[in-house]
Design a protein around this nucleic acid. Structure first.
Lengths: 251, 251
DNA sequence: AAGTGGTCTAGACCACGAA
DNA sequence: TCGTGGTCTAGACCACTTA
């Protein structure tokens, strides 16, 4: 008998989540009150509140003082902007993604990359370049720069990159935890270079994105530069809340 | 003497935040331990932890068991993807934004809008259309559909829309709290219509975004359709964490 | 008035990191 | 081993909603 060693509040979170997703509670329904839940799970109210807080982060519920805990509209319930690779995003939509060209090499960091990764000019970084193919068409050209000290012998994993996403590899093979990222999205027209790489005419609309990924302790770890056919892709962004007031003056 | 009636943990949050931003603690420094903070603020450790949790949401700190609470790299510290209008985003970058054309009227909801806002076909919605001008150039054409029952007499506020953003107006004049939004970003080439609206040639790259905004209780409230000159604008997206594992099986 | 979630206390033990 | 944050308890009072 394996005892699941998750903290109690996470176990309760998972169970409640399953009950919500299984349809036991409908959208708009009230969950049992915190006190009742504490009773049924034989836990303190604090622990229940921790579990509910997790559900709230997932936007599966929202709470109203004096009213209760209400199950959310699932339409908006997947909320977070996770760090997902291009490949993962497409696959989650059911699109088959293959790898066209693939190179892995150690190169001196270009100035902008060195700046983003806090490196000295000329320090070596891993450069991974891939063409991504969906439905037989090359639809994206992806360039990644990675800190070599975090991913030793990356070139030996080259073949793994053909089948799994880069981020999946980083997690599974190197145990890295990607924590945060900042991405800028621009759009422009293909020039001769892009036309050649993606087998498209010039003056087609393209997305150009630059993403810097940080590890848990705030170390910048990876730069991802993607060029994607805009006629084959769209971004979905989840937004939450309004910008905060800047400081209340205490009197 | 006005006593600030914020909850204690929020007061502590604000004070710590100010101390961090004022440079009292440097990046990488450890904050005092939770117990010490409890002592200095004369509060329980639970309350301190609530305050620290808020700082963590802002990505100003991160915590490591056995180590302590560490002040974060400010580069990634603004984390959230807030619901901001085009105007607010540009203004925060120091760009002056003016309004070109502006119309406010009640119209039957187009099918797609009716779907997004949970309306019957043909129900009336407010339609707001604006050209946004920066640096003398029209750079965006923005279309908003709003639930009329939430914004009575919107046409009377028309002039206010010339100077403030729509979202600011919704908050200040109607007391609405925008809670969540989902936005899709696409890119395409200008056709004759866009060329005319924005005074640009055809076949220029444009962003096309569709945003649905939800209120606190999950009611879809507004649809924002923007067409933006891609050569004058970029999106910045903050990403956090990796997609969650799908369910652990309990044994 | 009754019931809900929000805040707060004062304790306790555990898991992890560093010395 | 010691100090840290992580989890958990059993209470208490408050602010808000609904009836």
């Amino acid at each position: 008998m394996v005892h699941n060693d998750l903290p109690l509040y996470l176990k309760i979170y998972h169970q409640l989540r399953e009950e919500i997703e299984s349809g036991k509670y409908r959208v708009g329904d009230l969950l049992p009150s915190e006190e009742e839940l504490a009773e049924t799970f034989q836990a303190s109210r604090t622990t229940i509140r921790n579990a509910l807080q997790e559900l709230e982060k997932d936007n599966l519920i929202f709470r109203k003082r004096g009213k209760g805990t209400i199950v959310q509209e699932p339409k908006t319930a997947q909320n977070l902007n996770y760090i997902s690779s291009f490949t993962e995003t497409l696959r989650s939509k059911g699109v088959e993604v293959a790898t066209g060209t693939l190179t892995v090499e150690l190169v001196p960091a270009p100035p902008k990359v060195a700046g983003a990764l806090d490196l000295e000019r000329g320090e070596l970084v891993y450069l991974v370049q891939r063409t991504r193919v969906a439905g037989g068409l090359p639809i994206a050209f992806i360039t990644n720069y990675l800190l070599p000290r975090m991913v030793p012998d990356l070139e030996k994993k080259k073949e793994a990159l053909r089948t799994k996403g880069l981020y999946q590899l980083l997690e599974e093979e190197y145990g890295l935890r990607l924590h945060r990222a900042v991405e800028t999205i621009e759009a422009y027209l293909s020039g001769p270079l892009e036309a050649d790489l993606l087998h498209i005419p010039e003056k087609m609309p393209l997305f150009h994105t630059v993403r810097v990924v940080y590890l848990e302790d705030g170390i910048p770890f990876e730069v991802d530069i993607s060029v994607i056919r805009a006629d084959k892709y769209e971004y979905k962004v989840f937004l939450e809340g309004r910008p905060k007031e800047n400081r209340r003056s205490l009197k």
